[in-house]
């Protein structure tokens, strides 16, 4: 069955079984391998992508459900000018990743959180991030990274509002 996927602003037509999890289509048909397989049952969050701006687990989302929708993966969150998203930059500044395997999913959950809630409380962060497992135990640094990114993004918003830097 032909499915149309809009991924990171590009349109792809793929011929796949409509029940195939979006994860495997993104990785194998589209060739974007930054989105990871961890558990296949929405328990670990390594496969997190945005569907119309909301964080979803692509390992349990049939590709059919994403037909014609806007999908964003880790490869698509840089700024238009090619610079890193403030969350990505915060991940470097706080030296968060260790093995790094879960971090695409962590970053996608964190960016979705900050889009919806620009100044999350500690509890908000816990709630948004507890679906993402990190076996290297980077949780404390992730929390700091989100707080740092929130401050940077709030500052950027002020700069934009006032029209000058």
């Amino acid at each position: 069955m032909m499915i149309t996927l809009n991924i990171n602003g590009e349109t792809h037509a793929v011929d796949v079984d409509p029940a195939t999890p979006l994860l495997w289509v993104i990785r194998e048909q589209i060739g974007l391998v930054g989105t990871k397989y961890g558990c296949g049952i929405a328990q670990c969050g390594a496969c997190t992508v945005h569907l119309n701006g909301a964080a979803i687990r692509s390992c349990v989302t049939p590709v059919q459900a994403a037909d014609g929708q806007q999908i964003t993966t880790i490869e698509g969150i840089r700024r238009n000018d090619g610079t890193l998203h403030p969350v990505q930059q915060a991940w470097i500044d706080e030296q968060i990743p260790q093995c790094g395997y879960c971090q695409s999913g962590q970053i996608m959950s964190a960016t979705a959180l900050l889009m919806e809630n620009p100044s999350p409380s500690g509890e908000d962060i816990d709630r948004a991030m507890s679906g993402n497992v990190c076996r290297c135990g980077t949780y404390g640094r992730i929390r700091k990274g989100i707080e740092r990114a929130a401050i940077v993004m709030a500052h950027e918003a002020v700069v934009e509002d006032t029209g000058n830097g």
């Binding site: 930054g34 993966t73 470097i92």
Partner: peptide, 10 residues
Amino acid sequence: DIPAKVDGSA
């Protein structure tokens, strides 16, 4: 190794 681990390129 960290830069490649924040943009999916690792």
